[in-house]
């Protein structure tokens, strides 16, 4: 067990190394001079030269690479020229709505997806099963941003129930904050709920055919008890993994929803930085999000190893 933990934790290092390398190369993919691109067409030659020196772009690329890695290891992700503060600070200021949005979206997806998967599996081929699987297929076929636009049209413009855009920070009250994130979270949750429903249904169907379920039934255990106590517990394992993967996928997947609903979150910051050519923020924020992704996957793997005794630590 301890060996498994150590090996799994060590395996993060090469992955992170690749992530840092790709993020570093991003700046060098820009055609022409990144410094000129950052300052725009009105910049003078001296300004460009000054920025080049400041960013270390005059040095050979391998020197820049080593220096970049050393800086990242020290937690220094650079400073934003436009925001006039460190990238880490700029990111942290905007991270609250993004974290809330991901959490709320995931909770909604679990609350919708898992029960509909179970209900489908309990009565396979019923109308309920067919309609819930159709809903699941729709969920993976609808563009998230288009769903968001339609939700705004229906619930904000036509019915006037919920705000169409913007974000109320937690300091203004939890309820107000949740209200502002309801529509964005539904847009995000729909797709994930569909995935959960499909996975939950197929693993439930598999478990329901096992011998021990037949044994439980023949002992006269009520159907409800068989489903809730005997089948569900085992069928939930793959679903729990799917929830973990979805959590990781949502990190880095809220950008377009933050744009549609005008939420000042961390990922919207990245998009506006891309438009401003604020490369320090782009590199730093992508790096933070990728790290979060890698570490959440690590935690899921470890939890999975702990809750499922069948997983061997080889």
């Amino acid at each position: 067990m301890v060996g498994f933990l150590i090996r799994r934790i060590l395996s993060v290092i090469p992955t992170m190394f690749i992530v840092v390398t790709v993020v570093f190369l991003l700046l060098h993919l820009i055609p022409g001079d990144p410094a000129a691109a950052m300052l725009g067409i009105q910049a003078s030659a001296e300004q460009i030269a000054e920025l080049r020196a400041q960013l270390g772009l005059d040095e050979p690329i391998y020197v820049q690479y080593v220096k970049y890695i050393i800086r990242v290891l020290h937690g220094d992700l650079g400073d934003s020229i436009f925001l006039k503060r460190s990238v880490v600070l700029a990111f942290m200021e905007r991270v609250e709505p993004t974290i809330l949005l991901i959490t709320l979206g995931l909770v909604l997806a679990v609350l919708i997806g898992i029960p509909s998967g179970i209900l489908s599996a309990v009565r396979p081929d019923s109308i309920l099963d067919k309609s819930s699987m159709l809903f699941a297929l729709l969920g993976v076929s609808i563009p998230t941003f288009w769903l968001g636009l339609n939700l705004i049209q229906a619930f904000s413009i036509q019915l006037d129930w919920l705000p169409a855009s913007g974000y109320a920070p937690l300091s203004e009250g939890v309820l107000k904050s949740l209200r502002s994130l309801t529509l964005p979270a539904i847009s995000l949750a729909f797709n994930q709920a569909a995935l959960f429903a499909r996975i939950c249904r197929s693993s439930m169907l598999e478990v329901m055919q096992q011998d021990y379920i037949r044994t439980a039934r023949s002992k006269g255990v009520s159907e409800k008890w068989v489903i809730l106590k005997h089948a569900l517990r085992n069928a939930l394992l793959p679903t729990v993994t799917a929830v973990g993967t979805a959590f990781a996928a949502l990190i880095g997947g809220t950008a377009i929803i933050e744009m549609v609903f005008n939420i000042p979150g961390a990922e919207r910051l990245i998009i506006s930085s891309i438009l401003r050519r604020d490369y320090a923020v782009i590199q730093g924020s992508v790096l933070i999000i990728a790290m979060a992704y890698v570490f959440i996957n690590l935690i899921i793997d470890i939890i999975y190893g702990i809750i499922d005794p069948r997983v061997t630590y080889e």
Partner: peptide
């Protein structure tokens, strides 16, 4: 596989936007 893991760890949508901004 470590390269693939690294590439998959990068947030897809954001990488797409960043690459498109560069290209």
């Amino acid at each position: 596989m470590r390269i693939m893991d690294g590439l998959m760890a990068l947030p897809g949508m954001l990488m797409a936007i960043a690459l498109m901004a560069v290209l």
